[in-house]
Amino acid sequence: MELVLAISIGILAGSGVWLLLRPRTYQVIIGLSLCSYAVNLFIFSMGRLRSGAPPILTSQTGSLADYADPVPQALVLTAIVIGFATTALFLVVLLASRGLTATDHVDGQEQ
């Protein structure tokens, strides 16, 4: 499971960075989205991978080793919401730029 997660984070981040460096605004926004997926998975993995373990204590006694860490899950939720909102905002600016400059180049003009 660790290997699959690590590879998927790597692929997402790599593709995201490559797209981020492209000159078209649409590629940039997709790159940002991919990067944010990679980052979210990364945050999640920082709580250690564990399957079938609840994040909330079910009884008063019990070892912490049997539970998943809830904090990274809460962090991921926050990061998803914020990332989603800012990406949506970026989409609006992208459209405004397209409308004002009649090109989808990130610099507003073809090289």
Partner: peptide
Amino acid sequence: RVQASLHYIVVNLTGAFFFLVGVSL
């Protein structure tokens, strides 16, 4: 301003990713 914003937003969003990766580490 729209052009400047476009760059500003991309740079700062990327900065936010760094922030998140570092904080979670």
